[in-house]
Amino acid sequence: MIRTYKFRLYPTEEQVKKLEDTIGTCRHLYNDSLGERRVDWDVGFYEQKQLLTLRKQDNKYLKQVHSQVLQDVLLRLDKAYQAFFKKLAKYPKFKRKGKYNSFTYPQYNNGWKIIGDDDNNNKLVLSCIGAIKIKMHREIPVGTLKTCTIVRDVDQWYACITADDDDITTRTVSTSTEYDMSKPLGIDVGLINWLTLSDGNKIQNPLNFEAQAKKIRQLQRNLARKQKGSKNREKARIALAKAWRQVRRCRDDFVHKTSRTIADQGYTLVAFEKLNIANMVKNHHLAQAIMDATWGKLRQYTAYKVEKRGGRVLVVNPGGTSQKCSRCGVEAKEKLDLSVRTFECRSCGLVIDRDLNAAKNIEKLGLEQAHAETEPLLVQRQRISKFQSRKQEAHVLRRG
């Protein structure tokens, strides 16, 4: 399994200047390459990669950046185009100053490496920049180091290092044709009850934005009063960015702890609702609350933690899960309004919390989907075993 480990960097003032210059050079290359592809649609990644040598002859700033870092910029642009063609993202836009905050070294020992001793006096050596102090608060498992992405987060710098830890458990589960569904879990998400689990537990919405909302509004007013281009405006912008960073970190911390709790309970199958967040945030009355809930990030964090332990995470269609009885499966005759928080089944007489009923239905849908995916694999496995047995019989007859 390929994982990413994030570590804090402590560069000197001279190194900060080089890091910012590198980001600026990469941003200009990205914008220039995007302009070329907008004019000529026949120009692609490989054509622009071949033109890099000519660009370096005319641009002294490109010579100060490692060649593979520049190639990764072109690859990043090409991925943006591929996502657009697959209708997964909008058309690529030009990056203004402050909106391009990272660059990548794609190969270990070719542009970057880590040196250090047993006392955690580690250094991250970056080509064309130097050796930067890095705080490795956790040990990277034995595996193959791959890429290193340098990220600027307002006034702090981080190194995101990817490594293939070659996890035996994950590899065994991914290649297996049978799934363990002995301990399933369905999760219904909401704004009041952030999570409702099919085992009856509920997790309240932490409302991370509300804790910083007053401060953010005040900082936004202060920024609006400052003159554009002034040093005071830059200070106000950084203060506002730090406040938003605090909100983002609170969200990530809560999601990490929640996903860790779910994974540690040993669920072998976790089913989430398949939500279209892009359409949901079109409701401007609930957009801020939906974005603050970070349901997509919860599903992402839970997936890799559960799968590491040998489990599986699925997404199911949530249509009708709140309108159908989780015991007998009969749908309500009249559509329940959102204000009705209790589900009453007229067929079997079940009275249950609305969100808990939906979570149980999501769990059943997850089991059905897992069984539907498992059956073709088992049939294929049986055919392979029959073919092998016939092959062995034929081999025995030939020898006889």
Results as ranks from 00 to 15, higher is better:
L195M: 03
G111Q: 01
A236C: 07
D166W: 01
K97Y: 02
E178R: 10
A372F: 09
K274Y: 09
L336D: 15
V247Q: 11
K56D: 06
G400Q: 15
S174G: 00
Y100W: 13
V315L: 10
D180T: 01
V65G: 09
K60T: 15
A303D: 01
Y105V: 04
K146E: 09
N222T: 05
R217H: 08
D78E: 12
D167T: 05
V154P: 02
L52V: 06
V142Q: 15
D117Q: 07
F209Q: 09
S174R: 11
K231L: 13
D118K: 15
Y105S: 14
K99I: 03
R8E: 13
V125W: 06
Q48A: 08
K17S: 09
F387S: 12
K324S: 07
L219V: 10
R399E: 15
L34V: 03
A358Q: 14
R225I: 05
D117I: 01
S176F: 10
V396C: 15
R233G: 02
P376I: 09
G349I: 15
I203T: 08
R27H: 00
R260N: 07
T321G: 03
F343S: 07
P106S: 06
L378Y: 00
Q156K: 05
E363C: 02
K146G: 12
G329M: 12
V340N: 11
G35Y: 08
H371N: 02
R312F: 01
Q57T: 15
L219E: 05
Q107L: 04
I168F: 14
T104G: 06
T53N: 12
V247T: 11
K324G: 00
H395S: 15
V313S: 01
G98Q: 00
N283A: 10
N201Q: 10
Y30H: 00
R221A: 08
H284L: 06
D118A: 04
K282D: 00
D188I: 01
A239F: 06
Q388N: 12
C160V: 10
A370F: 03
K324M: 11
R312K: 14
T321L: 12
K49H: 09
A278Q: 13
V65Y: 11
T175N: 03
G111H: 13
V173N: 08
R237C: 12
D21Q: 07
K242M: 14
A289Y: 02
K146V: 09
L240E: 03
Y158Q: 10
K93S: 04
C160A: 15
I277Y: 04
E344S: 08
I238K: 06
T261G: 11
K97W: 12
Q15A: 03
R260A: 09
G400K: 14
F84A: 00
L336W: 13
L197T: 04
I161F: 07
R233P: 04
V142S: 07
V281T: 04
S389R: 15
I150S: 00
L75M: 09
C328A: 02
V330W: 07
N283K: 09
R221E: 00
I238H: 08
R346P: 06
Q218D: 12
L365E: 00
K305A: 08
Q388H: 10
L19C: 00
K18W: 02
D264R: 13
L29A: 04
